[in-house]
């Protein structure tokens, strides 16, 4: 891969996060490996349940436990394995050095505290500021995410802000301590289409300003095309394809990635006179409790071969900016 080792800031290596329930063990993440480079945007794509959010929660050590548990692998950050840190040590990483924004700006801010209170908390906690200084810093931060009349807004409660404004406030909060990594878990999914682009532009602009690396989790390849430098495609808790963004779109190898691309609606296709149905990936995401032997995608794969149900392929480098986990492209 083209990743210069010096620039790697976060390296996930063979991560396994399992959930234990009465129905059995759900291997939500099973041997996922990828890395994040300084100041770059890494897109992580996949359908719901593919393990992309659980991977992010594992990095933050926010996997609800029980039932969830990180059972294997390493998450290397700044020379330390995050999976080995104590909760007290982890608290200095969270928010300060790695921070996270969530999908639902409606519910991810506490409804009973003002925006200013919730932002100030970051400065008081990680920067040891006084309440007054922290509030000033918060107002400044709100201005940086282009919230109009930031001082008045700081006094308001979350429900008084629109969805887009709330997500801006969340971004302000996440970036307030200038973290090295920002994990954005579907940051635009719950927003109006018109607001989505603004929020993405804002994240990219602030990323440049702060030099933050971004892990952009999404199911929307459009978001990836707009923002990401490189992409990781996940399926059933594994990385199935990994490439630089341009390479991925121009030279799509994995049938699952192909399926995701083909099922993205293209504006104007129907009005052009061709009443094609939207392509979809047939079948459903398999239950994590009963994954097939061999390649996990074989049952839905239009190009499945006999070997696919026998042995699981490994993630294999095709060229220095592209790796894929598929027997079509791996000699066997």
């Amino acid at each position: 891969m083209s990743i210069d080792d010096k620039n790697v800031i976060l390296e996930i290596d063979g991560l396994q996060t399992y959930f234990y329930s009465s129905e059995g063990v759900a291997k939500a993440v099973d041997g996922a490996s990828f890395s994040l480079s300084k100041g770059k945007v890494l897109g992580v794509v996949g359908e719901s349940g593919c393990g992309k959010s659980v991977t992010a929660q594992s990095v933050m050590r926010l996997v609800p436990s029980p039932p969830g548990k990180i059972v294997g692998g390493r998450i290397m950050f700044d020379g330390k394995d995050l999976t080995k840190l104590s909760m007290a040590e982890m608290r200095h990483v969270r928010g300060d050095r790695i921070s996270m924004i969530f999908q639902e700006p409606m519910t991810s801010l506490n409804p009973v505290f003002t925006i200013g209170d919730q932002l100030s908390e970051m400065f008081m906690l990680h920067r040891g500021m006084s309440r007054k200084d922290a509030l000033d810093a918060s107002v400044e931060m709100l201005a940086r995410v282009q919230i109009p009349a930031p001082r008045a807004r700081a006094r308001e409660y979350p429900h008084q802000l629109s969805g887009g404004m709330r997500q801006r406030a969340m971004i302000a909060m996440a970036l307030s301590c200038e973290p090295e990594i920002l994990i954005a878990d579907e940051p635009t999914t719950a927003l109006d289409v018109t607001v989505q682009a603004q929020i993405l532009d804002l994240i990219i602009k602030l990323k440049e300003d702060f030099g933050t690396a971004v892990e952009m989790i999404t199911h929307d390849l459009g978001v990836i095309a707009e923002t990401a430098d490189s992409v990781v495609v996940m399926y059933a808790g594994r990385v199935v394809e990994q490439a630089d963004t341009v390479e991925l779109f121009e030279n799509t190898l994995h049938p699952y990635t192909r399926g995701l691309l083909d099922s993205t609606p293209i504006l104007g296709r129907r009005t052009a006179g061709k009443f094609e149905k939207l392509n979809e990936i047939k079948g459903m995401v398999p239950s994590l409790y009963s994954l097939p032997k061999g390649c996990k995608f074989q049952e839905r794969c239009p190009k499945a071969m006999p070997i696919c149900s026998e042995r699981e392929p490994q993630l294999t480098e095709i060229n220095d900016s592209h790796a894929v986990r598929c027997w079509l492209h791996i000699p066997h």
Binding site: L62, R91, R94, S99, M100, F102, T107, P111, V112, M173
Partner: peptide, 29 residues
């Protein structure tokens, strides 16, 4: 189980702050 509690943990707050400030205030209503 609310999202804003996840946010509070993600901020790096101590369990005491998360439980006695962020959660309890909502529970007390």
């Amino acid at each position: 189980g609310e999202e804003y509690i996840k946010t509070a943990w993600a901020k790096g707050l101590s369990p005491a702050k998360v439980i006695l400030k962020h959660a309890l205030r909502n529970v007390l209503i």
